[in-house]
Design a protein around this nucleic acid. Structure first.
Length: 110
DNA sequence: CCCGTGACGACAT
DNA sequence: TATGTCGCCACGG
């Protein structure tokens, strides 16, 4: 039942994010072809909470590498999870962001 | 069918 | 450099 919505597309891409790497909403939106609708990506994540399998939304940050979603995870849970995967996080901001940045439009491109 | 919503991004000042 | 405003578009009610 290919009732796949824009959200499902986002989830697929997010689940492709390798451990220890992060990406931005804009990068995902760009990969999906809706670069102007980066908001839709974030909006999709809000509904990803009950998706199966769970979506590593904690690996998705904004363009600045800032853990904007941590507010939704509750506490510093997001930073802790990223840190657990080897991602350096400081003050809700990913250190060496460009170093751990994983761009689907590049990594999955061909 | 119309309106509001929203985990962002780029541009203007 | 920092802050403010607009645009983007899919989904739910």
């Amino acid at each position: 039942m290919p009732d796949l919505t824009f959200y499902d597309l986002v989830y697929q891409v997010v689940r492709l994010i390798p451990k220890g790497r992060v990406t931005s909403y804009g990068a995902i939106a760009n990969y999906l072809g809706t670069k102007g609708s980066s908001r839709m990506v974030g909006y999709a994540m809000q509904a990803c909470g009950r998706e199966q399998p769970p979506v590593p939304a904690h690996r998705v940050v904004n363009r600045q590498g800032l853990l904007t979603a941590k507010f939704h995870f509750g506490g510093d849970l997001m930073a802790e999870m990223l840190r657990s995967e080897g991602v350096a996080v400081k003050d809700d901001q990913v250190q060496d962001f460009k170093n751990v940045f994983w761009d689907p439009s590049v990594e999955l491109a061909m």
